[in-house]
């Protein structure tokens, strides 16, 4: 279980997160919503150990993540698929996947998982020897998710997987997210695509300028009358 308790994060004098408490229980799909700059990515970067909290507690399965290196956090099975895909453009699709499986020693299992992600995203299988930079935006996102899956995540953190993609591709990506959830992968999903995210999520949190403004089950948040206008539109970021 992932637990953030009253976490503060700041970049120099810029406060990114203030007193943020989030819980993701095993097997859950939790979504973290918010407008641009609300602090969603900062929250994920803090969990992966790239950014360190100024205050508060942060743990996964009882391990204090604020004192664990990013390298060891990956070893715990906490895998972060970053915003903007960030695939390795000069590496082939297959090499990208191999990098995802970096810390795994069991070669037959890695090969099995590679075939599995090729079955999730057949287009990647067709392009396994192609450089990542030659893929379309949607295919790059599929590759980014697949690369994260190759790390055998126990907790998978997806940062805006639908950003800038065509509706059909978004649909395919969310289908896979649903499938992963069904298979029992714990997922923390950061999204701006509120409708889609809430449709798949068990629970959700809404971040507004670095603070949790709302939380509830997916159904509760979906039913909330002013969710989008009051909390998520960039124009009215301040409630």
């Amino acid at each position: 279980m992932l637990k953030l308790e009253s976490v503060d994060v700041a970049y120099g004098h810029v406060q990114a997160l203030t007193g943020v408490s989030i819980e993701v229980r095993d097997g859950e799909l939790v979504t973290l919503l918010g407008a641009n700059g609300a602090g969603k990515s900062s929250a994920l970067m803090t969990v992966s150990g790239i950014v360190r909290p100024k205050a508060g507690a942060l743990s996964y399965d009882g391990v204090d993540l604020s004192k664990t290196s990013p390298f060891d956090i990956v070893k715990l099975g906490v895998i972060h698929c970053p915003e903007g895909r960030r695939i390795f453009g000069g590496l082939t699709v297959q090499e990208n996947l191999r990098m995802g499986a970096m810390r795994r020693a069991d070669a037959p299992a890695v090969r099995r998982d590679m075939e599995w992600v090729y079955s999730l995203f057949p287009v990647l299988g067709q392009r396994r020897r192609q450089a990542g930079s030659t893929l379309s935006g949607g295919e790059q996102q599929m590759l980014a998710i697949s690369r994260a899956l190759m790390a055998e995540p126990r907790l998978l953190m997806l940062d805006e997987p639908s950003l800038g993609l065509a509706p059909l591709v978004v649909k395919a990506i969310f289908q896979v997210i649903r499938e992963l959830h069904r298979r029992g992968v714990t997922i923390l999903l950061v999204e701006q695509n509120v409708r889609q995210a809430l449709a798949v999520a068990d629970r959700g949190y809404v971040l507004v300028t670095g603070k949790i403004a709302l939380e509830g089950t997916g159904a509760d948040l979906r039913a909330h009358p002013e969710l989008e206008q009051a909390y998520l539109s960039t124009a009215k970021a301040h409630p």
Binding site: I50, P70, R86, F88, G90, N96, M99, M102
Partner: peptide, 24 residues
């Protein structure tokens, strides 16, 4: 080699390399 591919990966995107558990 895995470490050789990791070297190319790190030179393309150091942050992504760290997030994938590459020992930078």
């Amino acid at each position: 080699t895995t470490i050789g591919i990791a070297m190319r990966a790190a030179s393309q995107d150091l942050l992504a390399a760290r997030l994938m558990g590459i020992n930078v």
